[in-house]
Amino acid sequence: MIRLLSDMEADAYTLMATDEAILTAITQKKAPATLRFYQWKPQAVSIGYFQSAKKEVNKNYLFENGIYLVRRITGGGAVFHDKELTYTFFIHKDHVSDNIVESYKIICGAIIKGLKTIGINAKFSPINDLLINNKKFSGNAQTRRDNIIMQHGTILLEVDKNKMFSALNVPIEKISDKKIKELKNRVTSLKEEEKVCSFDKVRAALLKGFEKFGKISKANLSKFEIQLKDQLLKKYMSKEWTYAR
């Protein structure tokens, strides 16, 4: 059985604290395999566990535009979160694969299968991306704790590329205008590809895809998870964590 949590619309710190609280609960056998969908309000940039906030984001731009900054517990790259659907999937590795690269392929395969039901032909691009027409519209990142996989990822519904590339530090002094244009052209969204892109429609499609891992039933966060999430908020809001590297 996979627990489906109620959709959440929250700030970056709450969202990431919730992910870690759920992961902890599952590793302590206090919660079952879980799937959740959420949106980031206000807009935010998340950086990977190994990234340097100073190097990867334009701190002034974020401050001036009220964009939050949070470090994830997963590796991978910096992401500008705006009009998108984000999912997190928690499952024991025995139901996916011991091999990490393979497990990205399997979980992303479920997303591809789900999107196909609404006419979106996505392709997996190793290590952790999904493409439409050879352009990236989804990035995914995974961590593992005590044999539990936690994979989260984004599906870009719409994208403001100017804002995205202003928030993220592209070393403009080192690359030409032409290369910036090329970089922008490698990113897309469902809207840009002229696909129907409502949150609810994409969410319903992904649910179909994730059914391959088991029956999905609605449930809520436990009291333990809520309390842990509240405790973890401090960590995600702290400069020590955000600027840890």
Partner: peptide, 15 residues
């Protein structure tokens, strides 16, 4: 030394 980037290491603290 500081190694940063968009790679993955499992477990992460091994960095």
């Amino acid at each position: 030394i500081k190694i940063t980037g968009d790679f993955f290491i499992y477990p992460e603290k091994a960095i």
